[in-house]
Amino acid sequence: MTRPAETRQRIISAVLRIIGDDGVAGVTNRRIAQEAGVSLGSVTYHFATQQDLLRESLLTFVTGETRHFGELAQQQTNGECVSLEQVVELVGKIASTIPDNSERIAPYELYLHAGRDPELQDSAAECFAAYDKLAATVLTGLGVPNAEKVAGAVVGLVMGMKLRALATGSGTDSLVDALLMLAKGAGVQD
């Protein structure tokens, strides 16, 4: 028997796949149920509205992603302060290991949808705050002055470069150079 938490996660995973494949417009309860392998009633039981479903899908994705990135950074640096080049190399390594599949497109679709739907804007802001916090932690470890202010620019650059790679089918090689240029402009010393 499937537990409610497992069913809920299967539904969220299905939503992210559907959004990545066909956009937010492709999300219907019937399609979710089919993709997740759950009953139609399970979808509406776990998520009363489409907004609840979209909001939770976005938050779940970002929570998992920031946790994963934080763990990778901790493993690579062993909690020690590292050089700018090591951090940029780590970010580049992480970015290159992220698959360019439909589930990676889904958050961008949801962020754009939030621009049209005020009910999702708080969730999108929460997601960007999580990314900013992770970036600020790394930047603080590097000794960047005003790391919290610089974090938003770093997050914007990483997301923009990743979006560019998704849209063009190119790699994320230019991300490392762009991050080095931004970090040096923020006053990080080698």
Score class of each variant (00 low, 15 high):
V88R: 05
T172V: 15
A130W: 01
I94N: 05
K149S: 12
L134F: 09
V88M: 06
E126F: 06
A125L: 10
A147K: 07
D100N: 11
Y108Q: 07
V91R: 07
E89T: 15
V155G: 02
Y111H: 06
T97P: 05
A153Y: 15
K184S: 14
Y111G: 00
A129E: 10
V158H: 07
K162M: 11
A153E: 14
L90P: 03
T168Q: 00
G141E: 03
C127W: 02
V87S: 12
G152D: 03
Q86E: 15
I105E: 10
A124I: 02
A95G: 06
A153R: 12
Y108K: 07
G115S: 01
L182Y: 10
G152Q: 07
C127F: 00
T97Y: 07
V144F: 09
A178R: 13
T172D: 04
D117M: 06
A125M: 08
D117A: 11
L120N: 00
E119G: 09
R164I: 08
V154T: 13
I98W: 05
M161H: 13
T172M: 03
A167E: 01
E148I: 08
K162S: 13
R116S: 15
A125P: 04
D122A: 12
A167R: 04
V158W: 08
A151H: 05
E119M: 10
R164Y: 15
N146P: 01
G156F: 00
L166V: 00
A153Q: 14
P107H: 05
V158C: 12
S96M: 11
L175W: 08
D132N: 13
K133I: 11
V155Q: 02
V138M: 12
M181H: 10
S123R: 02
L134Q: 09
R164H: 15
S174M: 14
S123I: 00
A153G: 10
P107W: 02
L175N: 05
L134H: 11
G152M: 05
A151W: 03
K93T: 15
A147D: 09
L110H: 00
G171S: 01
G185R: 14
P99Q: 12
D177H: 13
V91D: 06
L175Q: 04
L163N: 02
T97I: 08
L112R: 01
V158D: 06
G156K: 03
G141H: 04
Y131E: 07
E119V: 11
D100A: 12
T97F: 06
F128Q: 11
M159G: 13
K93R: 15
S170W: 07
E148C: 02
D177I: 14
A129G: 04
G171Q: 00
N101H: 12
G185K: 11
G115N: 01
S170L: 09
S102G: 11
A124G: 04
I98S: 06
K184A: 15
P145I: 13
V150L: 10
S174N: 13
A136D: 07
S174T: 15
L112M: 12
L175E: 07
Y111T: 02
T137R: 13
D132I: 08
L182H: 08
A95M: 08
L179E: 12
A136H: 03
A183P: 06
S170I: 05
H113Q: 14
Q121P: 03
V176H: 14
D173R: 09
A136R: 05
Y108L: 13
I94E: 05
N101A: 10
K133E: 13
L180H: 14
R104C: 12
V150S: 07
